Amino acid sequence: MQAKKPRIPTPVRIPETASFLLAYRDYLVANAVSPHTRNAYLSDLIQCSQYITFPMPQWTKSEIEQVLAQLSQAGKSPRSVARCVSALRSFFKFLREQKLRTDNPLSQHKTPQIGRTLPHDLSEKEVEALLDAPNIYTALGLRDRAMLEVLYACGLRVSELINLKLELINLNQGYLRILGKGNKERLVPLGQHAKEWIEKYLLEARPQLIKSHIDYLFLTQHGGIMSRQNFWYALKRYALIANIQTEISPHTLRHAFATHLLNHGADLRVVQMLLGHTDLSTTQIYTHVAQIRLQQLHAKHHPRA
Results as ranks from 00 to 15, higher is better:
residue 58 Q to I: 01
residue 34 S to Y: 11
residue 34 S to I: 12
residue 80 S to Q: 13
residue 81 V to S: 07
residue 40 A to L: 14
residue 40 A to I: 01
residue 56 M to K: 04
residue 51 Y to L: 12
residue 78 P to E: 11
residue 138 T to G: 07
residue 97 E to S: 07
residue 32 A to G: 00
residue 147 M to W: 06
residue 128 E to N: 10
residue 73 Q to D: 12
residue 57 P to N: 08
residue 116 R to A: 09
residue 40 A to T: 12
residue 97 E to H: 10
residue 136 I to F: 03
residue 129 A to G: 00
residue 153 A to E: 07
residue 149 E to A: 07
residue 52 I to L: 11
residue 151 L to A: 08
residue 41 Y to L: 06
residue 50 Q to D: 13
residue 29 V to K: 11
residue 85 V to E: 04
residue 107 S to T: 13
residue 81 V to C: 10
residue 153 A to C: 11
residue 38 R to N: 08
residue 93 K to A: 03
residue 81 V to Q: 12
residue 149 E to C: 05
residue 64 I to V: 13
residue 65 E to G: 08
residue 140 L to Q: 14
residue 144 D to K: 09
residue 43 S to I: 01
residue 91 F to S: 06
residue 138 T to S: 14
residue 97 E to N: 08
residue 89 R to V: 00
residue 81 V to G: 05
residue 77 S to P: 06
residue 115 G to Y: 11
residue 110 K to N: 15
residue 96 R to G: 02
residue 56 M to V: 11
residue 71 L to G: 00
residue 112 P to T: 14
residue 141 G to E: 06
residue 143 R to C: 11
residue 64 I to S: 01
residue 111 T to S: 15
residue 121 D to I: 15
residue 75 G to H: 09
residue 96 R to F: 01
residue 28 L to E: 03
residue 87 A to F: 01
residue 91 F to C: 06
residue 65 E to Q: 14
residue 49 S to P: 04
residue 39 N to H: 13
residue 120 H to Q: 15
residue 128 E to S: 13
residue 41 Y to E: 03
residue 63 E to P: 00
residue 123 S to A: 04
residue 28 L to P: 03
residue 46 I to W: 12
residue 79 R to H: 13
residue 153 A to T: 11
residue 92 F to S: 03
residue 58 Q to F: 08
residue 85 V to F: 07
residue 71 L to N: 02
residue 121 D to C: 12
residue 104 N to V: 10
residue 52 I to N: 02
residue 58 Q to D: 13
residue 108 Q to V: 12
residue 122 L to E: 08
residue 69 A to C: 06
residue 30 A to R: 09
residue 111 T to W: 08
residue 135 N to K: 15
residue 96 R to A: 08
residue 119 P to R: 09
residue 132 D to K: 14
residue 137 Y to E: 15
residue 96 R to Y: 02
residue 43 S to H: 12
residue 90 S to R: 05
residue 31 N to P: 02
residue 46 I to H: 12
residue 37 T to N: 06
residue 88 L to H: 03
residue 61 K to I: 02
residue 51 Y to C: 00
residue 136 I to C: 10
residue 108 Q to F: 14
residue 149 E to M: 05
residue 49 S to R: 02
residue 86 S to W: 01
residue 75 G to E: 11
